[in-house]
Design a protein around this nucleic acid. Structure first.
Lengths: 369, 369
DNA sequence: TCCGATTTGTTCGTATGTATG
DNA sequence: GCATACATACGAACAAATCGG
């Protein structure tokens, strides 16, 4: 689908969906589009022709081509309830997302709704594609887990367009800057704080922290790590803070840990604060290879209290994550918002963002020294 | 309305309306129409293009242009294509299903389709509810993982109804008796056979097998277990075969293992064949508590080669499961079926059921004795 | 009201790519 | 492998409608 006319077509469609072209607004003329895309007039006309046929545009000879107003048809089709909620996550199969999705699905399916699933694989381009699809088709609401929430988001226009179309959406796990939607998040800073303080209270003074720097969860957990150090007036060694991107997660943290372990023993960390349980398990593997005992030689704290925490011979000390509960709550809230938007009720402020309080789960991977 | 392309268009339309062109009949080719009306190819294409957009004709590259079957007003009333595939699984978050779902989603979303997710939690009543919803709304195809595939299915009528409505569906992992849909399954009997034979070839003579009896996978893996015993003329001790229902999975197998371990040492099994990796990990926990070493004291074989196999201190010997590959294949096949059903083509037998061949992955949880 | 620049509508020609049978 | 048929893309020309001055 990488034909020239399709490229032109999708580009125009995107500008409609992200709100650049408002209903009845004149779009670029054929000759302008020819220059912009370096294609022949025929190709431009083919692209526009299909969009006209699909009801996105209308043409007026001598005047120009205009963005159609789809709101009327849409309101017709939203009357017959679709009962369809979209959920966009970064990863489907990794780790805790299946639990969140299950929570959403179980709540919604009991109420006659169904869930359409979109996975961005942490790629903004995919996120954009899915938002376009959701805007173009009929969904009653959207639950979004932001992609790369730590960096600025190029798709903000689409979210604003969701608001313009009164399509309710909520965010889970994190939230983009510049948007103020309802959101369901864990207090990640406090989580990171609890992880670190636990080790400090056990007498550890040299604590390494491993944090994903792509999403805001990682950044906040790191801030909690720093806060705990400051509160207990423990000096922070910058070398003890390892930040990694998602793509590097299988290599960089383990390498960096090996570096830390090769230091002279007085400089070597005695405790590891991990971005999540998955990473904790990966680091545990490194420690095994080096014949280091957990928790006797080194303590390690995970995050999420996933099944991984109880799978190994060393049961992980970790932080509770709401997982499927967050999914159920997300289902509840989105349905309430859908109800409000259907009834055109001035919102009763019944629904509010929720911040889940993290909680330390102590198992066998940490020990006083 | 006396433009050339309009003349051509009306002429073709007339031939459809007066029955000269019957549904699915090939109409004159573009070059023939050029001669007939003495117009350029572009003009012919313009005329045909509009008729295609209005649903009078459909084109097939290389084959020709055909008269559409307008009797089905249903397909027309859903103006824009929904491109919506439903997937019904037993569990969303358990284990390997996320990988399968991810495979389906990644394949379909790249092709502009989206996936609606339904989870039965292994309950036929839910399965029925979802099938009703799918029949009532508009979906282009359905991927189903059967619920409790080992016992007879009360929802068979719904599947027959899917066929009546020409709604393509395929089954993954297992297949209901009495239906002959396309299906994607692992050769579970061979898998169970490989698990067991591996232990036999390592010199084990007393091998316990733990099988889920709800789904046909469990039954078939058990049959493979029996077959391996027979092939190697090893007597089968019925007490060594533990069958459990899904609801019992957290309790019964571990209890039964404890019973087996409390037997006098000569009757105690030295190898464990597990329904899947998840169970293997659960049994591994029991063995740890009893201070038994794997693989020195006892060998254990999993199934699925999931992430669980590599998470523990003992890396599991297990059987390869296609996981996300099965999802991708399911996506491929369902789209092919959708295409065929849309085009009303007699199926080209391009698509066939696939049986994935299992493969033994040897790691550290098994050892010769 | 008319003019001219702009914009879309119709039609032709040509060439190459790709799927089908 | 080959002819056929549709798909994509370039170029050119003139017609018809619109709009600002």
């Amino acid at each position: 689908m990488e034909t020239k006319y399709n490229i032109v077509k999708q580009a125009i469609r995107s500008k409609i969906l992200d709100g650049t072209f408002q209903p009845h607004q004149k779009i670029n003329s054929e000759s302008e589009l020819m220059k912009q895309f370096s294609v022949s007039r025929h190709t431009v006309r083919l692209a526009i022709g299909e969009l006209v046929n699909q009801g996105w545009l209308y043409r007026e000879q001598g005047a120009g081509t205009f963005c159609a107003d789809r709101s009327k048809e849409e309101s017709l089709s939203t009357i017959e309830e679709q009962k369809n909620i979209a959920i966009i996550t970064t990863y489907i199969s990794d780790y805790i997302f299946p639990s969140i999705i299950r929570g959403v699905e179980s709540y919604l399916s009991e109420r006659g709704y169904h869930v359409s699933l979109f996975s961005t694989n942490n790629d903004h381009e995919n996120e954009r594609r899915f938002l376009e699809k959701i805007l173009a088709q009929h969904f009653d609401g959207v639950i979004i887990e932001p992609t790369k929430s730590a960096i600025s988001n190029p798709n903000i226009n689409y979210f604003l367009n969701l608001e313009r179309k009164h399509l309710p959406y909520i965010m889970i796990n994190a939230c983009y800057d510049g948007l103020e939607p309802l959101s369901l998040v864990v207090d990640d800073e406090k989580g990171g704080f609890l992880q670190t303080e636990h080790l400090i209270e056990l007498g550890h003074k040299n604590i390494a922290g491993f944090f994903n720097s792509d999403d805001s969860q990682g950044i906040k957990r790191m801030e909690g790590y720093l806060k705990a150090h400051r509160k207990h007036q423990l000096p922070i060694n910058p070398n003890n803070i390892i930040k990694y991107k998602t793509e590097e997660k299988t290599i960089k943290p383990t390498e960096e840990l090996e570096n830390l372990l090769s230091l002279p023993s007085k400089n070597r960390p005695t405790g590891l604060v991990c971005y999540n349980d998955e990473l904790a398990i990966a680091l545990l593997n490194v420690l095994r290879k080096k014949n280091l005992q957990v928790p006797d030689d080194i303590s390690i704290v995970g995050f999420d209290n996933s099944f991984l925490a109880e799978v190994s011979e060393v049961k992980l000390t970790t932080i509770q994550h709401p997982k499927s509960e967050i999914g159920v709550k997300a289902g509840e809230i989105i349905l309430e918002l859908v109800k409000q938007s259907k009834r055109y009720k001035p919102n009763k402020a019944m629904v509010e963002s929720i911040v889940f309080e993290p909680e330390l789960i102590v198992r066998n991977s940490t020990k006083a020294r």
